[in-house]
Amino acid sequence: MEQYSTAYIGLGSNLAEPIQQIQQALQTLASLPQTQLRKHSSLYRSKPLAGMVQPDYINAVAVLETQLPPYLLLEHLQTVENQQGRVRTGERWGARTLDLDILLYDQLQSSDPRLCLPHLGLTQRAFVLYPLYECEPLLTLPDGTKLVTLLQHCPMDGLHRIEN
């Protein structure tokens, strides 16, 4: 029997019906090859990063069991983003129809600019930490930090759960 890895995927959207974008992405994640959608968080509404003037984001986290290696999973996620109208403008934290990020992949650690694991910013972003906690409250990051410890230092800052 093939070995499965656990991948935690951050989902975000603030353009073109964001709630529907996230729901569609979750359905698509469930149909990826050699992959099962184990569970996902509720949907959360958050303000844009760095005070940017753009619509609020809808965020969620999905937990996948996958046989896809990390870079192949990344390629599939980027294909899903493109299929849902993602346009890469090069603007950091710009508005987007869909953003899919590999937050964690098993206990892998990588500083590769193409796929940094754990995902950069994961430990400071309420819109990632709270949905991640909803999925895996006992999660420990690859460096040994407990997710619950990170939450103690990360206020919700306007993050609101909007759907189960």
Rank of each mutant, 00 (worst) to 15 (best):
A50K: 10
E136I: 12
L139T: 06
T97C: 08
P33L: 14
P137E: 11
E2T: 10
L29R: 04
P113V: 09
V61T: 00
L37A: 12
N164M: 14
R114I: 06
G94F: 01
Q20H: 14
L129V: 01
L98Q: 00
E81N: 06
N59W: 07
A30Q: 13
E136Q: 15
E2H: 12
L37Q: 09
Q84P: 03
N59M: 06
T79A: 15
T140K: 14
L122D: 02
K146H: 14
T140I: 12
S110M: 13
P33W: 14
R114A: 15
L64R: 06
L74I: 05
G10W: 02
I162T: 03
W93I: 00
G158N: 05
S41C: 08
H153V: 01
E17V: 10
P155L: 11
E91F: 13
V53N: 12
G12C: 04
L159G: 00
P48W: 04
T66N: 10
C154L: 11
L49I: 00
P155G: 06
H40W: 10
S31G: 09
E2Q: 12
L103W: 04
E17I: 09
G12K: 04
L150S: 01
A95D: 05
E136N: 14
P33N: 11
T79Q: 15
F127M: 06
